[in-house]
Computed example of a mutant assay.
Amino acid sequence: MSSEPDDPVLSSPLYRGLVDELLRMRRRRNHVDDGAILEASAFAILWLFDDGRARTLRELADELCLEQSTVNRQVNAAIKHGYLERFEVAGQVSRLHRPTAAGRSAFEHDGARRARRLEAVFADLAPGTPEGLLRELKAYNDAYDRVAEGEL
């Protein structure tokens, strides 16, 4: 992509609109409603554990696409609040992390709240459907990954 000011892509209302909408979505990623129990970072971490697999800090950092120091701070805060626990596994250098019963309960509570908000958003989504949005977002992310991998 050219960085020249007269580049038609940069001045395109379509591309400016797309970037504006993607930025709006990005700003919402840390939104926490008043009835939520968890901070956004704790919810994101607990989301990863929904598959039932314990993880190291490195695995969490990789999956969240964050620096390990940031994830370490977030995990320590979640441990302090009783949402996660750290444990050792014989023969493994790195300690693993998993949700506590309180963490699972808070995640289920906040997940249900988020699901109800999405249901309300989808009820107001016109024209369009949640299935159509999922299909288009997946296609976008798959194409983006292919282009990004080609740049390496």
Rank of each mutant, 00 (worst) to 15 (best):
T129R: 04
L60F: 03
F43G: 09
S2Q: 07
G91L: 10
F49L: 02
F107K: 14
I45K: 02
G35C: 04
G128F: 00
S3H: 06
D50A: 14
G132R: 03
A77K: 15
W47H: 14
A120K: 10
H97V: 08
T70R: 08
A101M: 09
I79W: 05
L118E: 05
R73F: 05
R95A: 14
L152A: 11
R104A: 06
S3D: 11
R55N: 01
A102D: 15
T129P: 07
S69D: 14
S11F: 01
L137E: 08
F87T: 15
L10R: 08
R114M: 09
D145E: 12
D110R: 06
R24W: 01
I37R: 11
A40T: 05
A90L: 14
F122I: 04
E149T: 08
K138Y: 04
L64M: 03
S105Q: 13
R117I: 07
T70N: 10
L66K: 08
D62M: 12
L18S: 04
T56Q: 07
L133V: 15
L46D: 09
D124H: 06
A44G: 09
E151L: 05
S2F: 02
T100Y: 07
G17R: 01
E108I: 09
V93Q: 14
E63R: 05
P13M: 02
R29M: 12
R73T: 11
A126R: 10
S94V: 00
G128Q: 05
A101F: 00
F107A: 15
R98G: 12
R104P: 00
Y83W: 08
D110K: 01
R53T: 07
V89E: 13
E21V: 07
D142E: 14
S41F: 01
G35I: 00
A44R: 12
E85I: 04
F49N: 07
